Amino acid sequence: MKVVGSLILSMMLLAVIGSAITLVWARQESRVLFVQWNKLQNERDALNVEYGRLELQQATDAEPRVINQEARGRLGMVDPRPQDIQLVHL
């Protein structure tokens, strides 16, 4: 009878230790995933800020004044002289 009792007690002790180890592992995994989740949220926020900045830059660059300045400054384009303009009648 003592042997059976000791065996049951040993099995219960192993079950408790196994359960405790599983609990510690699950909590550690939860912490790791929470840290990763926070990093991903911060990255998402930074990307949203960058996207907003790029949208603003695109809207600014699409203004006719900016396009005219770029065409004249960087590309060296000028308005044609009146004698260089030809009308085409269809």
Results as ranks from 00 to 15, higher is better:
Gly52His: 06
Gln58Pro: 00
Asn68Phe: 08
Leu56Thr: 09
Ala62Gly: 04
Arg74Cys: 01
Gln86Asn: 11
Ile21Pro: 00
Val49Arg: 14
Leu75Phe: 13
Gly5Met: 08
Pro82His: 14
Gln28Ser: 12
Arg81Trp: 10
Gly76Asp: 10
Lys2Trp: 05
Pro82Gln: 15
Leu40Phe: 01
Met11Leu: 15
Gln36Thr: 00
Gln41Gly: 00
Asp45Trp: 03
Ile8Met: 09
Leu9Ser: 10
Gly52Lys: 10
Phe34Thr: 07
Ala46Val: 06
Asn38Lys: 02
Gly5Ser: 07
Val88Cys: 02
Val24His: 09
Val49Ile: 13
Asp45Val: 04
Leu54Lys: 12
Leu14His: 01
Leu75Gly: 02
Asp79Val: 03
Leu33Gln: 08
Asp61Pro: 00
Leu54Gln: 13
Ala71Glu: 05
Pro64Trp: 07
Leu9Arg: 12
Met12Cys: 04
Glu55Ala: 06
Thr60Lys: 15
Lys2Leu: 12
Gln86Ala: 14
Glu50Ile: 06
Leu87Lys: 14
Leu56Cys: 01
Leu40Lys: 03
Leu33Glu: 07
Phe34Pro: 00
Ala20Val: 12
Ser6Ala: 12
Glu55Gln: 14
Ser30Ile: 02
Arg81Leu: 14
Met12Glu: 05
Leu40Ala: 03
Lys2Val: 10
Gly52Asp: 09
Arg65Leu: 14
Leu75Thr: 03
Met1Ile: 04
Val4Leu: 15
Gln57Pro: 00
Glu63Phe: 04
Gln57Ala: 07
Arg72Met: 14
Gln86Asp: 07
Ser30Glu: 12
Arg27Val: 08
Leu56Pro: 00
Arg53Thr: 10
Val49Glu: 13
Val16Tyr: 01
Ala46Leu: 11
